[in-house]
Nucleic acid binder design. Structure first.
Lengths: 236, 236
DNA sequence: CGGATTGTTGAGGATACTCAAGTTAGGTGG
DNA sequence: CCACCTAACTTGAGTATCCTCAACAATCCG
């Protein structure tokens, strides 16, 4: 269901930041847009990387599966994010699987256009490098959390990240506005859904969050932050 | 102890790959080289990022320290590696501390030259992006290890990485040819020096490695690989 | 030679995992 | 619209891994 795209749709997309309208048009002319229903796979780990993408709306989950079949969530893809840029890592296949967790729309370019975009549009290259820098920093932050923090704090950090990147303000807190299961949170924090369930139950009793089946509302972000920073006894 | 640098010294440095000699000379003209004795700090976490670097020889350890004072080793810097590129992450300070673990020589550029290098030398930008891509992949690999593997396997992976990146072949195995303490390995794998000591002792008894104070020789890389992949009962 | 850093080893205990059984919520089809 | 089925979640009990605490030994450096 490919179709061409107008500039106005990508005004706020970081990849196009600092570009002239003409330059944006030039790049968009090679793109097509595509809709992915919730639950649909955009690409799968190991697949030949034929396209790279920018998410316009919706939400994706990128996972990696080990040889033994264990899954980890590498990141959530939010609107405006680049994803599937295997070429930038000098790879010909996708290192992970991208799944639309809700209905999503993405722009796509054939990977064969990558080199000419990089060479012809220094702005594109610079913006891509910036995005990779941010991902690198987030990866380092998470590594430090894994190295030094116990499970409850890691879960607190993960939930805060979800709230920051994909949260919508509501009357009584910040709502994670896409379906997120305990299993998902477990795969982000390197624990089990059982432990996540116990932790969230304790937080819920203390009034910090409000759970539900694939639902999550952060009632008191500040207290969650205290738990994440370890300045709090811990509610478990 | 700054001084100018000749092209021949950087023939094998990835940052200069694919550049004409004239281009290399142009970039090198702005660099100075500096020697760091073993144990010396190149830059410290939080410091204003005034330079970026390429390591010519020696070995650095980059660490991050948490608010509570816990240290983690972000990476080892090997000859040829770019480091201290805070600017690429849109930071004005260094996110970690770089320490020379042995006598080392690095090229340095003032960070004020970064933008003009990036804009004037597309090759430099592309090579930098590639380096970041590799670091991002390594970070994801380590995250997956933290998420899914027990300590012994994580330590095995860390030792294999050390052997691959900083190993020298000897008669009876691969020697890590810079000083590495159990504490270092613990900070790479998110465990304690006690546990690392116990693991290495067990491996040593089985003839897989040979330890010593800040010394490490991998006698049987293949068996270590099996432990890392979990195809082995585990020697602990 | 003496002090400091690094490493070893043991005992005990806490965190979080596994195993197990059940409950709730939501979607599906009759 | 209700009954059923499945996926998501809850909760408990037992246990393994690994951490903490502690004391000591070895190695290096000045």
């Amino acid at each position: 269901m490919a179709m061409t795209v107008h500039r106005s749709l990508v005004a706020a997309v970081p990849m196009f930041a600092g570009m002239s309208e003409a330059e944006q048009d030039d790049i968009l002319a090679r793109a097509s847009s595509r809709h992915y229903a919730g639950g649909t796979v955009v690409f799968e780990q190991g697949m030949l990387a034929e396209n790279f993408y920018v998410l316009l709306s919706g939400r994706l989950r990128v996972t990696q599966t080990t040889a033994e079949g264990q899954q980890t969530i590498v990141r959530m893809v939010n609107p405006g994010d680049l994803f599937g840029i295997a070429r930038a890592l000098r790879r010909t296949d996708y290192p992970g699987t991208a799944l639309a967790v809700i209905d999503s729309v993405a722009l796509q370019w054939p990977m064969t256009d990558w080199d000419s975009l990089v060479e012809g549009h220094p702005r594109f290259l610079a913006n891509t490098m910036l995005a990779m820098g941010q991902r690198l920093q987030e990866a380092h932050t998470r590594l430090q959390e894994f190295s030094t923090e116990e499970v409850e704090r890691r879960v607190a950090h993960a939930v805060l990240r979800l709230a920051n990147q994909g949260g919508r303000k509501e009357a009584d807190g910040i709502r994670i506005d896409f379906p997120i299961s305990k299993q998902d949170i477990a795969e982000m924090t390197g624990t089990t859904l059982h432990t996540v369930s116990r932790i969230l139950t304790a937080w819920e009793k203390a009034g910090v969050v409000e759970g539900g089946r694939q639902k999550l509302l952060v009632r008191e972000p500040h207290r969650l932050f205290l738990i994440a920073e370890g300045n709090q006894p811990g509610l478990l």
